[in-house]
Each structure stands twice: as C-alpha cells, then as structure tokens.
C-alpha cells in the first residue's frame, strides 16, 4: 500500500516539492565505483577501491520510518528493548505510531539507533552504506564527482559543521542534487554507516585521533570529514542522536 502511495506522489511532481507535508519518493540511485582518496586510507596513502553501489536519494524520513514501525511492532518506541535502542529512541515523536507536529513527514527521522536503522534497511532488502561508500558519494557536488578541492564547496560544508542543525531540521531534498542525483549528504543530519564502529584502529581514542590527525590534515576539507569520523567512532550501536539519521544502500548493479 505504501508503494502505491509513493507512486501516486511521484506522479504529482508539484506536490512532491511541497514543504513538510508530503514525502518525496526515495529511490536507490546508482553510484559508480571509483578509487577514493579517503581520509581513512587503508595501507599507506593508497586510494581505496569502492565497488559500484546504490544509495537512497535522501535520508529516511519520518513518514518512511512510520511505515516501517507500523509493519514491524518490535521496533516501535516502547517495544524496542534497551539493548537495541536507548531511552531517547524516537522521543521527538508524539507517540509510537504518531510522528506528530514536531516530526513532519518529509523531514529526516532522527533519534534512531544503529540497530533500528539497520533493521529498517534490512526490511527494504538493503543495508546501511559503508563508510567508504558514504565518503565517495559525499565528495560530489551538483557538477562534479569530486568537489573536495573546490574552496567554495568546502566552505559551504564547514559552515554547516559550525552550526549543525542550528535552525532545526528541514524537509529532505531542499538542497541541489549532486551529480549522482543524491540529496542531503551534507547540511541536514549526520548519518549512520554500517561500519561506524570500525573506522579507527582498534583501541584508538576518537579524541586523540581527531586532534592529532586534524593537525596533520593536508587539506582543510579533511577536517569536516574527520569530525564526522570522530563522531561516528564515539557512538555505540544503541545510541540515538537528535541530528543522527540514516539512509540505505545496496550493492551495485554492475554499472561502472
């Protein structure tokens, strides 16, 4: 039934662009594989090979997550066990099945734990993106695949990091799509990745990592990425965050 509703929305482009009321479709878009110059290189400074993959166009919204918890009672607020989601899980919603006025349909869902996000993606026959996939997708601007050397683009991102969520959340797809057609990889919410707890060397301290590596960062844009890595590394899987959402990924269909 949800698919039919989404199809209906897709046929009415004007409505899809409306503020927080209606939920735009969230298809999986192809991202070609590439060798990624990552802030987390594997051995030495080698580029990391990333296989082609698919990523959802925008972060999962309140409307999309509502459909999930409706169909999967175990993940409703009040039913989910503490081991899998902390006590702030969906606390911004008016009720377990009611996002309410403070969680408009087309805004990204937040205060979801890694386990809940992971379960959502599994129910969509998908998974969370890996860090390298996220980093590759997030390097793109509306015009180029790797915009990280562009000072204006970098500054835009750093501006958000200076005041994340300062004006409160907004509806998804309010920014310009990147060359991959993806929205909101910057400037809206932080996002879970599948390997969030395996980004730093085992036993590494995120604060020491951030401090030491930021001082050594070759380019300024690495600072924004390092902050994101440090944030993700400091989380535990049952944690939730006011500005922490997610989107899903799938293995690629062979496009290159």
């Amino acid at each position: 039934m949800r698919r039919a509703a989404l199809l209906l929305i897709a046929l009415l482009p004007g409505l899809a662009a409306a503020g927080g009321d209606l939920n735009p479709p969230n298809p999986f878009l192809e991202v070609p594989g590439a060798k990624l110059r990552s802030a987390l290189p594997l051995a030495g400074d080698e580029a990391v090979p990333v296989q082609p993959f698919q990523l959802q166009r925008h972060p999962v919204t309140n409307a999309e997550f509502l459909a999930f918890v409706t169909a999967h009672p175990r993940w409703r607020r009040g039913a989910v066990p503490a081991a899998l989601a902390g006590e702030d899980y969906l606390s911004q919603w008016a009720g377990p099945l009611d996002p309410g006025a403070h969680a408009p349909a087309a805004q990204p869902v937040t205060r979801v734990s890694w386990f809940a996000a992971e379960a959502y993606c599994d129910a969509e026959h998908a998974r969370l993106p890996d860090w390298y996939e996220w980093e590759l997708a997030a390097a793109a601007s509306p015009t180029v695949r790797d915009a990280r050397a562009d000072p204006a683009w970098r500054q835009q991102i750093l501006d958000w990091y200076a005041h994340p969520g300062g004006k409160g959340l907004a509806a998804v797809e309010g920014d310009s799509a990147s060359v991959y057609g993806l929205h909101d990889l910057h400037g809206l919410v932080w996002e879970w990745v599948r390997d969030f707890n395996s980004l730093l060397p085992p036993g590494a301290d995120p604060e020491k990592f951030c401090g030491a590596t930021a001082l050594n960062a070759r380019q300024k844009e690495d600072y924004a990425v390092l902050m994101r890595i440090a944030l993700l590394s400091s989380l535990r899987a049952a944690d939730t965050g006011r500005l922490l959402g997610f989107r899903c990924a799938r293995d690629g269909g062979g496009a290159s």
Binding site: L42, F115, D122, R127, N197, L200, A237
Partner: peptide
C-alpha cells in the same frame, strides 16, 4: 550481517583486510 550486529552489541570493532 549477524556478525556485524553481534560486534556492534559487544562493542567489538573489526575490519576485513584485502
């Protein structure tokens, strides 16, 4: 998938090398 979830539950980090 279950390996990843068990590790997340325990707080074990791991990464498969090439």
């Amino acid at each position: 998938r279950d390996t990843r979830r068990i590790a997340a539950l325990l707080g074990v980090s791991y990464r498969k090398l090439p």
